[in-house]
């Protein structure tokens, strides 16, 4: 019942996206811009050649793209709550969580586009997949699962904040230290010790390592880690994210007028 209602509401989210195609700009143009900036501007300086850096950085760019994509859901929901449609949902005999689950599920379309565009553009400029096809599929699925879990932090912020602008600002503050304070763009080895400590426990480091393992292989992963271990780590962090932020978001949604 809740699955059916969530899917009906997910369809609403997708229809709204299709009717406002500018909503796809961030997931289609942004990953390309980020890839160009990191690979062609910083790449040579960091790794010697752009090509070597591409192989190292693309998994990190996917993770970064997904982080920013997942954070937009709170902005959208915050403005959606104001137009009264959610009052109607609340007056219907459906699960209280269905409208939020529907929004999170509908956003899978955006995550898929973001991942697809990044991988396709990466491949076009020379990224080589060095793992079997099922590893690549696993990487994509893992990324989507991570995105859906991460969405709940943004939903929670979206329910708490007074304006969608505030949601955006707060989300940026969360995403920035997480993505740059990780091994997503550079190996941690050159960083000062205290920062290395943070990088080692930063979930983004583990997600990036899992992606590297699944798309390229162990060679570019943080020494001492394994693909299986990192995937498990990502799945566990998904459980924690949902376990903490789903109830918080629901509580905030219930009390939101």
């Amino acid at each position: 019942m809740i699955v059916r209602d969530s899917l009906i509401l997910a369809q609403r989210t997708v229809t709204k996206m299709v009717r406002n195609p500018e909503q796809f700009l961030d997931v289609s143009v942004q990953p390309i811009v980020m890839t160009v900036i990191f690979v062609f501007i910083f790449g040579g300086a960091i790794a010697g050649t752009s090509q070597d850096y591409l192989q190292f950085a693309l998994p990190g760019i996917i993770v970064q793209t997904i982080m920013t994509t997942a954070m937009t859901i709170g902005v959208n929901l915050n403005s959606d709550l104001k137009n009264g449609v959610f009052d109607r949902f609340r007056s219907l005999p459906i699960a209280r969580s269905a409208p939020l689950m529907g929004a999170v599920t509908g956003d899978v379309v955006r995550h898929s586009i973001a991942i697809g565009v990044t991988l396709a553009f990466g491949a076009a400029i020379g990224f080589r997949f060095l793992t079997p096809w099922y590893s690549v599929v696993t990487a994509i699925v893992l990324m989507i699962v991570f995105a859906m879990s991460l969405c709940w932090t943004s939903v929670f912020i979206g329910m708490l904040a007074r304006s969608s602008g505030a949601v955006q600002g707060l989300s940026f503050l969360i995403v920035f230290p997480l993505t740059f304070g990780s091994s997503a763009f550079v190996p941690a080895a050159t960083m000062p010790g205290w920062l290395q400590g943070w990088v080692a426990i930063n979930p983004v480091t583990h997600v990036t390592d899992a992606m590297r393992g699944l798309l390229v292989g162990n060679s570019i992963m943080t020494p001492g880690t394994s693909v299986g271990g990192e995937v498990l780590w990502v799945l566990l962090s998904c459980v924690v994210l949902v376990g903490v932020f789903f109830p918080l978001a629901m509580r905030a949604y219930r009390t939101k007028l």
């Binding site: 369809q11 609403r12 229809t15 137009n83 009264g84």
Partner: peptide, 27 residues
């Protein structure tokens, strides 16, 4: 019950008929 809010709570990005079908399906 049926509820009609102070500010017409229709989904602007959906067609008229889609608004109604969605609510019907949720019911």
């Amino acid at each position: 019950i049926g509820l009609t809010g102070q500010y017409a709570s229709v989904d602007e990005d959906l067609r008229g008929v889609e608004n109604l079908v969605m609510i019907g399906r949720l019911l």
